[in-house]
Amino acid sequence: MSMRIITTSALAIIAASATVATAQSRDQIQVAGSSTVLPYATIASEAFAENFDFPAPVVEGGGSSAGLKQFCEGVGEGTIDVANASRQIKDSEREECAANGVANIMEVRIGYDGIVFASDIDGNDFVFTPTDWFMALGKNVVVDGAVQENTFTNWNEVNADLPDQEIMAFIPGTKHGTREVFEEKVILQGCEDSGAMAAFAEANGGDEDKAEEMCMEIRTDGKSVDIDGDYTETLARIDSAKNGIGVFGLSFYENNTDKLKVATMSGVTPSTETIASGEYPVSRPLFFYVKKDHIGVIPGLKEYTEFFVSDAMAGPGGPLSEYGLVPDPELAATQAAVAEEAVMQ
């Protein structure tokens, strides 16, 4: 008896599901991509739902590359509408998109994100330059004109102005977009500034690409630890290893200023102001990409895009900057481009 009820209801559910599946059209926007952009996208999604008569967009993380890969899978209700990215879309990704019929892509820059170096609140103060980081973490360094394996163990060996504290760095793992920025704007910069790049090029017979590669090699003797999780893991590591220095996003640091002490970079303290003005060197733009062909198909997509970059959201004093986004000085241009649905060329 009970078997019959269960079997019947199972069949009913399958049948109902099948009819619903064929009849249903998606009415909420789907977003995926960078975990750095994720908090901003959730804030925008929540505010969008409470100010418009559309359901809240569903926002997934997963990383810029994973998001853009999903984004480029094709056009239609079965694919996502928006990809968040903490870097610009690559040419190879655009080709992939074009091959799958995703031709009209709108690029929207929402603002800037700073990358900060922070240590335990009760620890020493640090005043860094990119050179210090390269000298501390590079696999090969130049000492007295000779290229040699990095054997520095304390920060004051790298730079006499730094405190006598063991080198212990928690840097983002290679799957993070933040790692790329860290390598480019800190390690590579430090490599050039310290003159090591020239020495590496010389050692490789003038091959600059090889020299650049050598610059970005990070030492593997345990002084530098790759964190593949997110900033909460970095924070937990610093909590247990008090002499560690971690790489964080500005917004994460601003939410945890009672536990972290931020270091200056090239004499500039990171803040939304110094990043907006360009004084603080380690920052990057944040983007999201919209399928133009979905506008008009997925209800509210245009409104969401416009709302995200409106002054009330992304401008100074808005909820996004409150969380740590550095407002884009050229926001008006972005708003105009979104209004006329300008696609990438």
């Binding site: 599946a21 249903q24 995926a32 994720l38 996208a41 959730t42 569903v58 926002v59």
Partner: peptide, 16 residues
Amino acid sequence: VAFVSTYPAAPPEGFF
């Protein structure tokens, strides 16, 4: 693992 802030509808539509 998405950020979902809208309740799903009653079944069976809600399953989707």
